[in-house]
C-alpha cells in the first residue's frame, strides 16, 4: 500500500487529478483494512467475557463437583457460616432445578406448540396478528414481572400457600414464547407440498398436522423445547419470590415446604462467601453445576436440531 502512495506522489506525466485519485484509493484501502480489523477485533473482544466466565466458574467450582457427596447429599445439618466446616451436597438443588423445569415444560410446551399450530396452520387476519403480537410481548416480559404476577394471583388473590408448582407457572410464562416462536419457525419450514400430498390422499387436516407436519418438524421443535428448558433452568428471579429455599431434598411440587434449586442454593450462601471459604465453595460449586447443566441441555438442543428433516 505504501509503495502505491509513494508511486502516486512521484510527479510523472499524470495530471494532478490522477494523483489525487490514487491517494484517495489508498485511503479507501486503509479504511477498508481498518474496518476488517475492527470486525475481527469486536469478535475477539466478545470472546473475553465468555472465556473469563467459564474459567472463573470451572476453576473455582469444578473441584467441588468432583466430590461424590456433592451429588449424593443435600444440605441437611448445615450450620452457621464460618462454623460449619463441611460443604455437603447439592442433590436437593439439582433435583429441584430439574423437577421445576420439567413441570414448567409440561405446562408450557403443549400450550406453546398448539399456539404455534394455530399461527401457522389455522390463523389469519386480525386474531392471528393479535396473538402473534402478544407472543412477542410475552417474550419481553421480565422474569421478575412474571413472578410478581403469579404471586399476585396465587398468594394475594387466592391466598394459597407458596409451592414449587407456582414457580413453575411463572417459569412457564417465560418458556411459552420461546417454544412458540421456535415451533412456528419449524412449522413454516415444512413445505406446503407435503400438506397438499396428504390432503390429496383424503387425510383430514388435523391428521395431516399430527402425522405429517409435526413429525417432519419434530427435531426442530425439540430443539426449541430444549433451549427453552435451558433458559428456565437458569432463571433466578421467580425462585426468589415463589420458591422458598430449603436445605432438604424435597421432591413434591405441591408441598408447602419449599424446594431448593441451584440458583437459590447460590443465593442462600452468597452473602457469606467473602468471609467463609466453605460458603464460597458451595456458591461456585452450584454455579459450576448450573452452568454445566444449562450448557449441556443447550448443546443437546443444538445437536438435535442438526437432525431436522426440514431444510431451509
Amino acid at each position: 500500500m505504501s509503495t502505491e502512495v509513494s508511486a502516486a506522489e512521484r510527479p510523472l506525466r499524470g495530471s494532478g487529478r490522477e494523483l489525487r485519485g490514487r491517494s484517495e484509493s489508498a485511503s479507501r484501502k486503509l479504511r477498508n483494512t481498518l474496518a476488517t480489523i475492527v470486525m475481527w477485533g469486536a469478535f475477539l473482544v466478545a470472546l473475553i467475557p465468555l472465556i473469563w466466565i467459564m474459567w472463573t466458574v470451572l476453576s473455582k467450582g469444578f473441584s467441588t463437583m468432583l466430590d461424590i457427596v456433592w451429588w449424593q447429599k443435600d444440605q441437611s445439618g448445615v450450620g452457621a457460616a464460618g462454623f460449619d466446616k463441611m460443604i455437603r451436597g447439592a442433590r436437593h438443588a439439582i433435583v429441584g432445578t430439574l423437577l421445576m423445569s420439567i413441570a414448567t415444560s409440561i405446562i408450557a410446551v403443549p400450550l406453546a406448540v398448539f399456539t404455534a399450530i394455530y399461527l401457522v396452520e389455522y390463523g389469519r387476519g386480525k386474531l392471528a396478528r393479535a396473538i402473534s403480537f402478544m407472543v412477542d410481548i410475552l417474550s419481553g416480559v421480565p422474569s421478575i414481572v412474571a413472578a410478581l404476577f403469579i404471586y399476585a394471583v396465587w398468594v394475594t388473590t387466592f391466598g394459597w400457600r407458596l409451592m414449587p408448582v407456582a414457580c413453575s407457572l411463572a417459569l412457564a410464562l417465560l418458556m411459552i414464547p420461546v417454544v412458540t416462536r421456535s415451533t412456528e419457525e419449524m412449522l413454516k419450514l415444512v413445505p406446503n407440498e407435503l400438506r397438499d400430498a396428504s390432503y390429496a390422499l383424503g387425510v383430514p387436516k388435523w391428521k395431516t398436522i399430527v402425522k405429517v407436519v409435526l413429525p417432519t418438524s419434530f427435531s426442530g421443535i425439540l430443539t426449541g423445547v430444549l433451549l427453552g428448558f435451558a433458559r428456565v433452568a437458569g432463571e433466578t428471579a421467580p425462585l426468589l419470590l415463589l420458591a422458598n429455599y430449603t436445605p432438604f431434598l424435597q421432591q413434591n411440587l405441591f408441598s408447602g415446604n419449599g424446594m431448593a434449586a441451584l440458583p437459590t442454593l447460590i443465593n442462600a450462601n452468597v452473602q457469606f462467601m467473602s468471609a467463609d471459604k466453605i460458603s464460597a465453595d458451595r456458591v461456585w460449586g452450584a454455579a459450576c453445576t448450573l452452568i454445566l447443566i444449562v450448557l449441556a441441555i443447550n448443546l443437546l438442543g443444538r445437536l438435535v436440531g442438526r437432525f431436522t428433516k426440514v431444510k431451509n
Binding site: T56, G234, L290
Partner: peptide
Amino acid sequence: LLAAVPSIVYGLW
C-alpha cells in the same frame, strides 16, 4: 453461548 450463561453466574462473576 453467552446467552446461555445463567444471569446469576453473570452476577457472581
